[in-house]
Lab assay of single mutants.
Amino acid sequence: MTSCHIAEEHIQKVAIFGGTHGNELTGVFLVKHWLENGAEIQRTGLEVKPFITNPRAVKKCTRYIDCDLNRIFDLENLGKKMSEDLPYEVRRAQEINHLFGPKDSEDSYDIIFDLHNTTSNMGCTLILEDSRNNFLIQMFHYIKTSLAPLPCYVYLIEHPSLKYATTRSIAKYPVGIEVGPQPQGVLRADILDQMRKMIKHALDFIHHFNEGKEFPPCAIEVYKIIEKVDYPRDENGEIAAIIHPNLQDQDWKPLHPGDPMFLTLDGKTIPLGGDCTVYPVFVNEAAYYEKKEAFAKTTKLTLNAKSIRCCLH
Rank of each mutant, 00 (worst) to 15 (best):
I6M: 14
H21K: 05
H207I: 11
G123S: 01
M195I: 02
E36H: 10
P257M: 02
I16Y: 00
K32R: 11
C67Y: 11
L78T: 10
A148G: 07
T277I: 11
F282E: 12
S83I: 13
S108K: 13
E293L: 13
G176Y: 10
G212C: 02
E106A: 14
S120R: 04
I16H: 02
A7P: 14
T298H: 06
P271E: 10
L126T: 04
S108E: 10
S161K: 13
T2F: 07
K60V: 10
Y64T: 07
G123P: 03
Q250C: 09
N54V: 02
H21D: 01
Y109I: 07
Y223R: 05
Y155R: 15
A296G: 08
Q184F: 11
L128N: 04
D74Y: 10
T119M: 06
E238K: 10
V48L: 04
T145E: 14
T264G: 09
M122E: 00
I225C: 15
G18Y: 05
V14W: 05
G27L: 03
E235P: 09
L25D: 15
L255N: 03
L301N: 02
R168N: 11
R63D: 07
E293W: 10
Y153H: 15
R92C: 12
Q94E: 10
E36M: 09
Q184L: 13
I16W: 03
V14D: 02
A305G: 08
D130N: 08
D66A: 09
H201V: 07
L263R: 07
E211Y: 07
T298W: 00
I137M: 08
P181H: 04
W34Q: 01
K292F: 08
H33D: 07
R233C: 11
K213Q: 13
G45E: 04
D193P: 06
P217D: 09
P257Q: 01
N70G: 11
E221G: 01
S120M: 05
I199P: 00
I11L: 08
N304M: 12
E89S: 04
M261I: 15
D107L: 10
E40F: 06
I225P: 13
Q184M: 12
F209S: 04
H159Y: 08
G22F: 07
Y289N: 15
F29R: 15
D234Y: 08
E158R: 00
D114R: 03
Y289F: 14
E89D: 06
H208A: 14
L272F: 15
K172V: 00
S83T: 14
P183W: 04
E238D: 13
P232F: 02
E211F: 07
K300M: 08
L78A: 10
L265D: 02
D230Y: 13
F135W: 03
T264P: 02
T277W: 00
P181E: 02
P271R: 12
G22P: 15
P216T: 05
M198C: 15
L255Y: 01
A240F: 08
I52K: 05
H116W: 02
C311Y: 10
L265W: 10
N121V: 04
Y88W: 12
Q12H: 07
T302W: 11
E221K: 03
I226L: 12
L35I: 10
H5V: 12
M122V: 15
N210L: 00
S3T: 14
G22N: 07
L86Y: 11
H207Y: 12
R91P: 07
A171Q: 04
T20W: 00
D190Q: 07
D259Q: 08
N70T: 08
L126H: 04
H141G: 00
D68E: 07
H98V: 13
E95K: 13
S169N: 09
G19M: 03
I6A: 14
I65N: 08
T20Y: 05
D249M: 00
K59V: 11
P245R: 01
F205Q: 04
M198W: 05
K197F: 08
R92L: 11
D130I: 03
A15E: 00
I137H: 03
M195K: 03
P160C: 09
A93T: 08
T145P: 05
V48T: 07
A165Y: 10
H10E: 15
G79D: 13
N121E: 03
P245W: 02
R71F: 10
L150C: 11
G274R: 02
P183G: 09
N97F: 09
H313C: 11
N133C: 11
F262I: 04
D68N: 07
K268I: 08
I111A: 01
I143R: 02
Q94G: 11
F262D: 04
N37Y: 07
P102T: 09
I111R: 03
I52H: 00
D130V: 01
Y288M: 15
E106P: 14
R92N: 07
K228M: 11
G19A: 00
H98P: 07
I170N: 06
S146K: 15
A219L: 06
V179M: 03
R56I: 11
F140R: 04
L78N: 10
W252L: 09
L30A: 01
E293Q: 15
I137R: 06
C67D: 10
I157D: 15
E106V: 13
L128A: 02
H10W: 07
F140G: 04
N133L: 01
S307E: 09
S108M: 12
Y173I: 13
N54M: 00
M82H: 13
E221M: 00
I225G: 12
L301V: 14
V281H: 04
E293D: 08
K200D: 06
G18L: 00
S83K: 13
E40W: 00
K103C: 10
P183C: 10
M261K: 03
S131K: 09
C124T: 06
E293P: 10
Y64A: 09
L156I: 05
T118H: 01
M198P: 04
I41A: 00
N121R: 05
K163V: 09
N23Q: 06
P50T: 08
T125H: 07
K300Q: 07
G267P: 01
Q42T: 11
P102W: 09
A39L: 11
L115D: 03
G79Y: 14
D275K: 09
R63M: 09
Y88E: 10
Q182K: 05
A202G: 15
D230T: 10
H116Y: 10
Q12L: 04
L192V: 13
L187K: 03
L35G: 08
P55M: 09
I137W: 04
D251T: 02
D130H: 01
E76W: 10
